[in-house]
């Protein structure tokens, strides 16, 4: 009995050590930098800053970062390959990022509707109490995850999100004929920076009744 207890204690300790080891491999903070991430505006700004700090020309730094990232990622993926199915099936991870990027060029969603031949009326945009149709639903974290764009493009679920929000609004507002969803993008200046009031519109999608 005592020997069985002692053997279980050793087995448990071995299993726990194994779990720690696998977690350490999966969570190893190897940079996984993709070319499109470096080439987008925020990536270019970061590259320029690091180039100044390190005294390395930006194109050379870009190539070095991508090469090191690719090599390190390949090595870690090879090491972690036997355990990858567990993480894929359970959708768990040990790589954590909480607001890794503070975007100085945020998106701002606008949901608008119009009657036949009429002008567009703003129905909803975040942080605008005057235009807050369906705010409680749209701002719920899981729904927001489907429409909040990534750094350069909307989520794959975005077209179906527009289908759904258009259905909801057209059902609630019989006089509306068309719904439009689009995102403005503008620059946030830090207090000591020169103002930049450039605004642009992106990802416009329309749905008619």
């Amino acid at each position: 009995m005592l020997r069985a207890v002692l053997r279980w204690a050793d087995l448990r300790a071995a299993l726990l050590l194994f779990v720690l080891g696998v977690s350490a491999i999966q969570g190893c903070p190897v940079p996984r930098v993709q070319p499109h991430q470096v080439d987008r505006p925020i990536g270019q700004r970061e590259l320029a800053r690091w180039s100044r700090i390190l005294g390395v020309p930006a194109p050379e730094l870009r190539e070095r970062v991508l090469d090191v990232s690719a090599e390190a990622s390949r090595a870690l993926d090879t090491l972690g390959a036997p355990f990858a199915p567990f993480y894929e099936r359970t959708l768990t991870t040990q790589r954590w990022s909480l607001f890794p990027l503070a975007d100085p060029d945020p998106w701002w969603m606008h949901v608008e509707g119009r009657r036949v031949g009429g002008p567009w009326e703003l129905l909803y945009r975040p942080n605008d109490p005057q235009h807050a149709r369906l705010a409680d639903v749209l701002e719920y974290r899981r729904i927001r995850g489907t429409w909040n764009p990534g750094a350069t493009a909307p989520r794959d679920s975005y077209p179906r999100f527009v289908d759904w929000i258009a259905r909801e609004l057209l059902a609630q507002e019989p006089e509306l004929d068309e719904i439009r969803v689009r995102f403005s993008r503008y620059h946030i200046n830090l207090p000591h920076e020169a103002p930049d009031d450039t605004t642009s519109w992106h990802f416009e999608e329309r749905r008619r009744r």
Binding site: R49, W96, P100, I188
Partner: peptide, 26 residues
Amino acid sequence: GLHKSQLTWWPAGDFGALYLILLDPH
């Protein structure tokens, strides 16, 4: 913390990250 490589989280970026996040309308 390790994934916060963007310089606005560090002195070189003026520690400006929280300011930008608090102005993100989403």
